[in-house]
Amino acid sequence: MSPSAEQDLGAIRGALVVPGLPMQLPEYAGQADAGGEIRERSVAALVEAIADWKPSAVVVVAGHDPLAEHTKGSVGARVARLLLAGAGWEGPVREISVPIDADPGELDGAAERVLEGRTATGALVLVPADLSAKRTEAAPGHFDARAAAFDAHVLDAIASGDAAALIRCDLVLAQELWATGQAPLQVLARVLPAPVRSEIMWSALPWGVQYVRARWWGRKA
């Protein structure tokens, strides 16, 4: 699956979207590691992506809550560091943080910062990002009837490698549905604007939150 030169996406080898839930962090685990399986499968996906794409660097695009007043750093970035450590990645890493309520201008700015870091041999973009958190009565954000259609649209855009469809998502609705991953996904859509090859490796909503693990790589033929 190694990309040939013509498949190179402006020196971005490919992107891996992974669940970003804090339950994956060891400091939040109970005796039973409820987020462990999700974390380990993401590590495995990252190992596979690194082996396939042989990137020279990793760019993490993670959302952060501008209203959260703590110094721990964003959960997404911390999850990404954990996954990279788990995958044994020792190369360079750049973290691009984007507010989860970013407007289009901020998203464009974040995308430019991703592209500034392009290297000749290509980067892997790692995106911890989750969809809505209002799919069921027991979901963190309770049930919202609009959430299923929203998630279906985003999943379809990811599955088909359709960056333009991702960018068309309603940012206000995403906020209302607690889709904290929408901003980083929109940044991804901006740095890989052409139709790309895509694969959804897993998607589920075990706690009323829609998760997805997917990858984008290479231009579509």
Binding site: L21, Y28, A29, G30, A32, A34, P140
Partner: peptide, 11 residues
């Protein structure tokens, strides 16, 4: 002692 299982608020 760690709690047995932690999900609330961490999904």
């Amino acid at each position: 002692r760690r709690p047995a299982r932690t999900v609330r608020g961490l999904q």
